[in-house]
Amino acid sequence: MTLLLPEPTTTPTIAAGTMRHKASSPASSPYIATSRRILIEAEIAPPWIAAVERRINELLLLPPGWDTYGAQPITVENVLLALSLLERLVDLDSPAPIIVPTVAGGIQMEWEFDRTAVEVRVDEGGAWFFVGDDSGEHEGPASADLSARAARVIAAVPYST
């Protein structure tokens, strides 16, 4: 997966895998003067990737206080980190994550199955994993172990529509 992030002066690129993401800042997108936008260019990607792109772009437009309790707006930086984690968790036939905003300026990706669950939160507190699997509940900062657990849970329930 490749992340392309056009900024006013720089365009950071993170290359890894098969999908390409672009995030455009207001300065580089003349038709977006008051918000930011993520573009995902995917040559090979799960069928739900366009829906993820739409959802993220909706969330990037949330104003301060969007939760009625003083929540922060969502930042492009947190979204890009979340997408880089997503890339490591899913395959082409993986089920889509549910994506929700967090009050600390980030997003949370959720997979909820009958007896298992994965939540990956990326916001000002960093990247945090929760995995509920057959062995119990595990959570903590992003790590190879939690990422592998999460990927196993997600892989066990293929995308089915």
Binding site: L59, L62, W66, D67, Y69, G70, A71, Q72, I98, V100, P101, T102, V103, A104, G105, Q108, E110, E112, D114, E119, R121, E124
Partner: peptide, 25 residues
């Protein structure tokens, strides 16, 4: 944003855990 689809729930929705995140302060 925190009422998400959950086909297995009686009302087809559930509340995300993100709705109970403490404030950043």
């Amino acid at each position: 944003h925190h009422l998400v689809d959950a086909p297995s729930e009686p009302l087809g929705k559930r509340i995300s855990s993100a709705a109970f995140q403490p404030s950043s302060a």
